[in-house]
């Protein structure tokens, strides 16, 4: 059975790109446009990994990670965050909140796939 990845990003173009890339590689993709919607989907669907942006309206990525990690269904689910922050601060915050890995934007499709495969398997 193919793995399901939840992508959370307020940018429709990024979601589309992630979604096309991952579904081309055989993953199922769920989309959410902010942390709130992400949390709702993450806790009501069976998912194998989450890709989330950090800077989002309503609920930002760090808060999403925190709240999701507080939910039992997140056990064992890797969370990868997308970040353009070159400073370590955001990254550390996200990691402390319980993220598994990260991707630095801009990234190419190959890189995205490699990271998803790394944390979720193929």
């Amino acid at each position: 059975m193919s793995k399901t990845i939840l992508t959370i990003d307020d940018s429709a173009s990024i979601r589309q790109m992630v979604s096309l890339t991952l579904s081309a590689a055989g993953y199922q993709v769920l989309q959410a446009s902010d942390g709130e919607e992400g949390l709702e989907k993450a806790t009501t669907h069976r998912i194998d990994a989450v890709l989330t942006d950090l800077n989002m309206p309503k609920m930002n990525g760090i808060e999403f990670i925190r709240q999701y990690r507080a939910h039992p269904s997140s056990a064992g689910v890797p969370i990868v965050f997308l970040t353009t922050e070159s400073d370590d601060e955001m990254k550390q915050q996200a990691k402390q909140a319980g993220a598994t890995g990260w991707i630095v934007k801009p990234f190419e499709q190959q890189k995205l796939l490699a990271v998803v495969k790394k944390v979720a398997g193929s």
Binding site: L20, S23, A24, Q31, E37
Partner: peptide, 19 residues
């Protein structure tokens, strides 16, 4: 490389979940 270079459009049907 062939794996990810696959045209994404063919798999678009898989995108069942949208906003």
């Amino acid at each position: 490389p062939g794996k990810s270079a696959q045209p994404p459009q063919h798999r678009e049907a898989k995108e069942r979940q949208g906003s």
